[in-house]
Amino acid sequence: MAANFWTSSHCKQLLEPEEVDVVPSLDKEKGLTLEEFKMIKIHMTNYISRLGQQCKVRQRVVATAITYFRRVYTRKSMTEYDPLLVAPTCLYLASKAEESTVQARHVIFYIKKIPDKKYVYDLKDILEMEMKLLEALNYYLVVYHPYRALSQLLQDVGMADLTILSWSLINDSYKMDLILIYPPYMIALACIYIASVLKEKDTTAWFEELHVDMNVVKNISMEILDFYDAYKQSIPDERINAALSKLSSKP
């Protein structure tokens, strides 16, 4: 599938980093900072992963759901589109789009199983939000992911022992907006790069032969490492709640 990434809607929709790191104006009015905006996205990314595990969907579905989630907030505000509803709806929509349908009532069932504060939404809300999401996504549903590229690239470099580490790195990369900015195979390359450095494997010659822009690969790698630095500890619940309550406050 990677063969035609270049002609895909995903490719055409890639954004510049500056375009992604923008707090929607409505949220800004409520005092939401960029830091908090990112934090909520990380928190909800984790939430989608957990819900995805509960629903037993493939990693690909989770990754697509997170991509939808992040795309939505490049266009819509969290004030109008409550992240707590958008997140499970993204998973529901992604499960259909990736041909692994989870029934909506099952999603609801598992939402309630995650012991968390105020997920007060019901079937009707999810179905209504699905429609709004489709519109927000401009009906573009096909998303490419670094996973396929990863296995092909690792096979090519002949370092299957890097699989687990680089796969986990990719999983974590969804806590950032990389998937909205870079072609998936570049993200895969960055994860291989980090993994090879950590495991002290020499991939220099291989990377040189690839004829890719190593600056981009290194930039992505740096961003990932910076991210790990910044979020070493998990974000305290109070901070998340404080950020979320800003959204529900009246301006």
């Binding site: 259909k96 789009a97 349908t101 179905l127 699905e130 489709l134 009906y139 549903l141």
Partner: peptide
């Protein structure tokens, strides 16, 4: 089940 699966596939 919200948007019909077949329809969604066609849109996608």
């Amino acid at each position: 089940e919200g948007v019909n699966f077949t329809a969604l596939r066609e849109i996608k």
